[in-house]
């Protein structure tokens, strides 16, 4: 009972923090909107100026929602990757999946593909294809016999990232004139947020999450090692492919709107694991909430630190994530997470 109480408390506090962060973010921005107006807008009780209403409804609110989805998605994908690889040093950015998705997006834009049927835009589909190919490539590059040494996995990911990033830069340079846009996209930014972007990625995000949630228990058992999991009745190869596919789908959908934002998928799952333990059924919801919260904070910082100039949020997440990665590398209690 004590344990359950503690877990509920953790969730409650986290949800409150997320809500508070959302409201604070609504207050922040290049044009000043008084707090009273923001609360009036939220409760809908009182008329506010048309400009303020548009800024809040069409600029700030979609950005807040999108940054939460992007952060949550990257954290969820990171949690899955860390579970399947059984090491918290991996995240979609480091192992090159973000770059793969980005390359997919670039190709889609280059080829001028604007097919949209129902709510599904083809751009995330291309991102998904790029992400999947990258996972497959990195995974097979890193495999030594039957084993997947984490170090080679990381190195293979970094190498593939390098290649894909240069491909992306090349495509962008020959295609677009706007260099600032290129840089922002490569570094990851939420500057282009609108309701359309949310509508575009939400279906992919939801499908990926449903699949992941369905296999959370299997993921727990895979943490014991693939062979042990096999002996406990888990069809390891199948579950691994499905989970990596779902995590790639989420990463792809997120990357197609925000570019590659790094290190959220690395830092957040690890912190969540320290708070609540390795059981994915409890870990995953917390990682999702914390991931959303993390990007809300960092994106608010990106918008305000040098206002009116806006920084790519990827710079800030990398500033936090890089040192964290080094900390994980140098930890004393090696190999126990």
């Amino acid at each position: 009972m004590d344990k359950k109480y503690r877990i509920s408390l953790i969730y409650l506090i986290t949800i409150l923090i997320v809500l508070a962060l959302g409201i604070i973010s609504l207050l922040l921005g290049s044009s000043y909107i008084p707090a009273a107006d923001v609360f009036a807008f939220l409760s809908g009780t009182q008329e506010i100026s048309r400009t303020s209403a548009i800024i809040l409804a069409e600029i700030r609110l979609p950005r807040i929602i999108l940054s939460f989805i992007v952060g949550a998605g990257l954290a969820a994908a990171g949690t899955v990757f860390q579970g399947v690889i059984r090491n918290p040093m991996v995240d979609p950015y480091i192992i090159g999946i973000s770059a793969g998705a980005g390359t997919g997006v670039m190709l889609a834009l280059l080829l001028g593909i604007e097919i949209v049927f129902w709510n599904f835009s083809a751009v995330p589909a291309f991102a998904f294809l790029g992400a999947l190919l990258t996972v497959f490539l990195v995974y097979n590059l890193a495999k030594v016999g039957n084993k997947l040494p984490v170090l080679t996995f990381l190195l293979a990911g970094v190498a593939v990232s390098f290649i894909l990033n240069s491909v992306m830069s090349f495509l962008m340079v020959i295609r677009t004139e706007n260099l600032q846009q290129i840089v922002y996209w490569l570094m990851g930014s939420l500057a282009g947020s609108d309701w359309a972007a949310i509508k575009m990625i939400l279906p992919y995000f939801i499908i990926g999450m449903v699949v992941i949630i369905y296999y959370l228990k299997d993921l727990n058992i895979i943490l014991l090692g693939e062979e042990s999991a096999g002996h406990l009745g888990v069809n390891v190869e199948k579950v691994k492919i499905i989970l990596l596919g779902a995590a790639s789908l989420i990463t792809a959908s997120v990357v197609s709107v925000s570019g590659s934002i790094g290190f959220i998928g690395l830092v957040v799952p690890h912190i969540a694991r320290m708070i609540i333990g390795p059981d994915h059924r409890k870990l995953m919801p917390l990682a999702v909430l914390l991931g959303g919260a993390f990007l809300l904070i960092t994106d608010s910082l990106a918008r305000t630190i040098m206002a009116p100039l806006e920084l790519p949020v990827g710079i800030i997440t990398a500033m936090v994530g890089g040192p964290y990665f080094i900390y994980l590398l140098r930890r004393k209690t090696k190999d126990i997470w």
């Binding site: 059984r86 090491n87 228990k217 727990n220 058992i221 943490l223 014991l224 090692g225 062979e227 042990s228 002996h231 406990l232 009745g233 888990v234 694991r273 333990g277 390795p278 059981d279 190999d335 126990i336 997470w337």
Partner: peptide
Amino acid sequence: LAVVPQDSQVNFNFNVYDIIMMGRHP
């Protein structure tokens, strides 16, 4: 059929009860 492997190292902080309960997975 159950197997006790040579290397029983678990790199994640599960408690003993959770680990044993995983045996009920099938």
